[in-house]
Amino acid sequence: MAIMYALKSSDNEIFEVEQKVIEQSETIKKMIEDGAATGEIPLQVSSKTLAKVLEWCKQRQHKTVENENDDNKGKRKKERDEDDDIKEWENKFSDELKADKDVLFDLLLASNYLDLPALLSFLCQLVADMVAGKMPEEIRRMFNIENDFTPEEEKAITAEHGWAFQP
């Protein structure tokens, strides 16, 4: 019987999660080890974001468990198929985040706060892929960021690396 934990989001929603799934978060793992996690574990993460975080953790957990149960025979083909499945799942996950940048932003902060290195790395790569090849103005529009430089500051910044701002 798997040990279950109750996670409480910042808007007081309860999520029942298997220990193995949630221990991917170093922050929560520490809380459990320190004995601080009796009853509900309160987290500074909204229910919408926490649901996304758990979606990721469950997918990862699924992958590790299956690999552990594999015997070597036929492993290669199975791994290849699994890799394809994971890729497909990750693509779908990325597409959703690209479409809703508020969720992406909250998820970035949550993965940092919960200390989920694999998710954090995945999300940073996603942001990097999104900004690659784009000019500052396009990046601002994409993430709804205000240009808070004075015209003089902006001029100095672009003049310093003039060649990098040519289309």
Binding site: V131, I139, E146, F149, F165
Partner: peptide, 8 residues
């Protein structure tokens, strides 16, 4: 370089 020029 471009990323650093987005905002303060």
């Amino acid at each position: 370089v471009r990323f650093r020029a987005v905002c303060k």
